[in-house]
Amino acid sequence: MTKLLASGGEFVAPGVKDFFLPPIFGGVTKPMVLLVLSIVIIAAFFLAASRNLKLIPGKFQFAAESVYDFGRNNIAREQIGAKDFKPFIPLILTIFTFILVNNLFGLIPLIQFPTMSHIGFPLAVSLLVVYPVYHFVGFKRHGFVGYLKHQTVPPGAPWFVLPLLIPIEFFQKFILNPLTLAIRVFAAMFAGHLLLLVFTLAGEFLLLNGGLTVIVAPVSFAFAIALTFLEALIMCLQAYIFALLSASYIGMALAEEH
């Protein structure tokens, strides 16, 4: 959908330009503020929930414990392994909650902007946090040469295919994985928010300027509402996938075999 013409008006669909918001002050933009706000929210949530711990938890403590248990057992333990997962619980839990809160900003009234729809933010998490951690622990456990072999030489591969496999494995493990980790959540947040904008603004346009086509406006709003629920599910799922893959990369780096 590019343009809708009705009653002399013109609807220009939202696009990439709508994701580049003007600075609030100086060089500080809304996504930057939301990034800091997400850290404050997460820190306040866990500090408040753990301030007065009880044997029988209240609703707030139960919610925090549920999030912690999910990150600990369903992500870190399963992907890294029972032997090595404990030191990485804070990292995986932080990644999961950080991505989740920044995604959910896209559904909060007045905010309505998923921070991860700017490619720079998921790239920063992937390249500056996840990427160094899993390669560092891999080099530490296996040694420099041992880790390179561990990552690039599939066990049991015939020697004559190694000249082809080694460059492919190296490219995947050291270049492609951190990029796809970031692009996955960025693409989902960008596309989802763009669709919500299209149906919401199109419904408003048809309602106010559509002439006889005003009867189509409720259909556009209905699609926007349905997409909102779908987007909420995708936001949670993408946070889970990002944390899951981060833990998986750490687990593969530490594993004795692929």
Rank of each mutant, 00 (worst) to 15 (best):
H150L: 00
H150W: 06
H150I: 00
H150N: 08
H150V: 00
H150A: 01
Q151N: 07
Q151F: 07
Q151P: 02
Q151W: 00
Q151L: 11
T152L: 01
T152C: 13
T152V: 12
V153T: 09
V153H: 11
V153P: 00
P154V: 05
P154I: 00
P154N: 02
P154W: 05
P154R: 00
P155Y: 05
P155F: 02
P155E: 14
P155S: 06
P155M: 02
P155R: 11
G156A: 05
G156N: 11
G156I: 01
G156W: 10
G156D: 03
G156R: 07
A157C: 08
A157I: 01
P158Y: 03
P158H: 10
P158D: 14
P158L: 04
P158E: 10
P158R: 06
W159H: 09
W159R: 08
W159I: 13
W159K: 09
F160S: 10
F160D: 14
F160N: 11
F160P: 01
F160E: 13
V161H: 00
V161S: 07
V161K: 03
V161Q: 03
V161G: 06
V161D: 10
L162Q: 09
L162K: 10
L162V: 04
L162G: 05
L162N: 00
P163R: 11
P163G: 02
P163I: 12
P163Y: 08
P163C: 09
P163H: 11
P163T: 14
L164C: 07
L164M: 13
L164V: 15
L164A: 15
L165S: 10
L165N: 03
L165P: 02
L165I: 15
L165K: 01
I166K: 01
I166N: 03
I166V: 15
I166L: 12
I166W: 00
P167M: 07
P167N: 05
P167C: 11
P167Y: 14
P167F: 14
P167I: 03
P167D: 12
P167G: 11
P167W: 13
I168R: 03
I168S: 02
I168Q: 03
I168G: 00
I168C: 00
I168N: 06
E169G: 07
E169V: 04
E169L: 14
F170K: 11
F170P: 04
F170S: 12
F170E: 03
F170R: 08
F171C: 05
F171S: 13
F171E: 10
F171N: 09
F171K: 07
F171A: 15
Q172G: 10
Q172Y: 14
Q172K: 15
K173L: 00
K173W: 12
K173G: 03
K173P: 08
K173Q: 15
K173V: 15
K173F: 06
K173Y: 09
K173M: 11
F174D: 06
F174M: 04
F174I: 00
I175R: 01
I175T: 06
I175H: 01
I175V: 15
I175K: 03
I175W: 03
L176S: 12
L176V: 08
L176Y: 14
L176A: 15
L176M: 15
L176Q: 15
L176I: 13
N177K: 11
N177P: 02
N177I: 02
N177W: 10
N177E: 15
P178T: 08
P178G: 11
P178K: 10
P178C: 10
P178M: 09
P178N: 08
P178D: 13
P178V: 14
L179V: 14
L179W: 13
L179F: 12
L179I: 13
